[in-house]
Each structure stands twice: as structure tokens, then as C-alpha cells.
């Protein structure tokens, strides 16, 4: 195989790997924005919390409970952490965010920004600003696979497939099921949906929990790949914002497709001019704003 092509494919795979994380996060952001009109600035911090919770479950919880043999592993974390993060999200929505509905959405952005600072500060104090490795990668997912053009870590391949399945699942849930239909109706006209006897407030709480749970899930998946630091959500949330500006928060498919595309683009750019890889998403955002200000899939809001 042509070495250049091979390099592009290899970087493309790594880019796709980043892309699925963008997809999971922008998906959660879009689900929350769709129903609540809230841009959750804490999304990156929740993703980071998810990664740290995975580490805590594996390495610390046993000691804290006085059961030093106890290590809650990756598979259990994959279920538990999203639930914990979702519960946190629901409490946050129920007791803080709820007070700001009906006000300028700027205020809820600032509230979640404050929450992000608090979360980040707490983890900096607990774990320091440098990286903590995740020791609990399951044996089945260790090692590498030969993709023909590169040797790819098994775990990364797993995250790509798993995340894409999650994205399809969420899309199906919201666009094709009854729950999703109620949810979308609640977005369009909450009062009317209330009149049908549906508890929209509870629906909103659950949706916020669902969106934040997705961030937690992404965090668990990221823990074995990236170095887990309190600042890992920081850079990511800004990239996610740019992606959301590009794709528009109106459609779930739009958010996922844009995320995967930009992840790939980042990877490919790395082959040709590495220093631009950090900024290519933002440059893409500038181009989209110039050519199609309402975003690729968005309606103007």
C-alpha cells in the first residue's frame, strides 16, 4: 500500500476515535438544548468527572470502604458511572437550573459555567492537575488488531464501535419511539403536552439526566485512552461548542455526522501540517459562518 495513503488512513482512524467522543458529547448537548434551551457549559466537566469516577471506582472506593480487595472494573463502571453522573445532573437541574427557565438563556450558560469551575476545582484538589492513569482496562480489550493498514489498539476500536452504536440508539430513541415523540412534542409546545397529562417538568429533569449521563459514559470510555486530568474537559468543551455551531443543535443526526466528520478532518490535517490540527475545527467553524451562517444542519435560532 502507498505509505502516504497508509498514513492518512492511520491518522484518520485516530481522528475518528476523537470524533466519536465529540459525537457523544455534542449529542448530549443537543438533547439538552433541544428540550431545555440550555447550553450546558458543564458538559466537559461532567465528562471529566466520568473519567475520574471510573478511576475512583477501580482504585479508591475499596480503600475508602475499608475493603482493599474491592476494585470495581471497567464493565461495571460503564453502567454505574453514567448513572451516577445522571443523578448528579438531575439534582443539579431540579434544584438549581430550574430557577432560570424563562430567563435569558445566557444565565443558564453562566450557571453551568460556574458549576464547571466548581467540579474542576474539586478534582484539581483531589487529584492534582497532572494526569492519572486508568489501570482497569479489561483483559479482553487489551492488545492490538491488524486492520490491514495499521495495528490498532483493540480498546480504541471498541470505543469507536460502541459509541457509534450508542449514537444510533439515541437517535432511534428520540426520532422513532413514543418516548421520543413525547419529548419532541414537549420541545415544541410544553403547555399543550402538559394538557395531555404528561409531567413535562419530570421529563425535563430526566432529559437533563440523560444528556449528562452520556457525558459520563464518554468519560468512562475516555479514561483508558487519554490521560485523565481535571482539565481534560476544558479544551474539549470548546471544540464541542465549535462543532455545535457548525452542525447546529437542531438535529441529532447533524450533531453526530458533524462530529465524526470533524474528527476525521483533524486526523487527516495532522498528516499534512500537524500544528494546524488544533485549530482546524475552529477554522472550519469560521468558514461555515461565512458561507452558511445558520450551520450545516441547523435552523436559525
Amino acid at each position: 500500500m502507498n505509505p502516504m495513503l497508509r498514513l492518512i488512513l492511520a491518522q484518520g482512524m485516530l481522528g475518528l476515535n476523537n470524533g466519536v467522543f465529540y459525537a457523544m458529547l455534542s449529542l448530549g448537548l443537543a438533547v439538552i438544548f433541544g428540550l431545555l434551551d440550555v447550553v450546558n457549559f458543564a458538559h466537559g466537566a461532567l465528562y471529566m468527572s466520568g473519567a475520574f469516577l471510573a478511576i475512583i471506582l477501580y482504585s479508591y472506593i475499596g480503600t475508602w470502604l475499608g475493603l482493599s480487595w474491592l476494585h470495581i472494573g471497567f464493565w461495571a463502571a460503564l453502567v454505574l458511572v453514567p448513572l451516577i453522573v445522571a443523578c448528579f445532573g438531575m439534582l443539579f437541574e431540579r434544584f438549581l437550573l430550574r430557577w432560570l427557565y424563562g430567563l435569558d438563556p445566557i444565565y443558564s450558560l453562566l450557571l453551568t459555567f460556574g458549576a464547571a469551575l466548581v467540579l474542576q476545582g474539586i478534582f484539581i484538589n483531589g487529584f492534582g492537575a497532572s494526569g492519572t492513569p486508568y489501570p482497569g482496562t479489561p483483559d479482553q480489550l487489551q492488545g492490538i488488531v491488524n486492520l490491514g493498514f495499521m495495528m490498532f489498539p483493540k480498546f480504541r476500536l471498541f470505543t469507536i464501535i460502541f459509541s457509534i452504536l450508542v449514537c444510533i440508539g439515541v437517535w432511534f430513541l428520540i426520532e422513532r419511539t413514543r418516548i421520543g415523540a413525547v419529548l419532541r412534542a414537549g420541545t415544541e409546545n410544553p403547555d399543550l403536552v402538559r394538557a395531555f397529562g404528561i409531567n413535562v417538568s419530570r421529563l425535563i429533569t430526566l432529559t437533563f439526566g440523560f444528556g449528562t449521563g452520556l457525558a459520563g459514559l464518554a468519560g468512562v470510555l475516555a479514561a483508558p485512552i487519554y490521560s485523565v486530568t481535571p482539565l481534560m474537559g476544558d479544551d474539549l468543551i470548546i471544540i464541542i461548542f465549535a462543532i455545535v455551531v457548525i452542525g447546529g443543535m437542531g438535529s441529532i443526526m447533524g450533531a453526530v455526522v458533524t462530529s465524526l466528520g470533524l474528527g476525521l478532518l483533524e486526523g487527516v490535517v495532522k498528516v499534512f501540517y500537524a500544528p494546524a490540527a488544533n485549530t482546524v475545527v475552529f477554522i472550519a467553524m469560521v468558514l461555515v459562518l461565512l458561507v452558511r451562517p445558520s450551520g450545516l444542519f441547523g435552523r436559525q435560532r
Binding site: 444565565y107 469551575l117 476545582g121
Partner: peptide, 15 residues
């Protein structure tokens, strides 16, 4: 680094 927590909390209270 607790400063960041305090600043975040002030943000929340203000908003």
C-alpha cells in the same frame, strides 16, 4: 486551587 471552587460558587450564587 480552592479559589476556583469559590469563584465557581460565587458565579452560581450570583446567577
Amino acid at each position: 486551587s480552592w479559589v476556583q471552587v469559590v469563584i465557581g460558587a460565587i458565579f452560581i450564587v450570583c446567577v
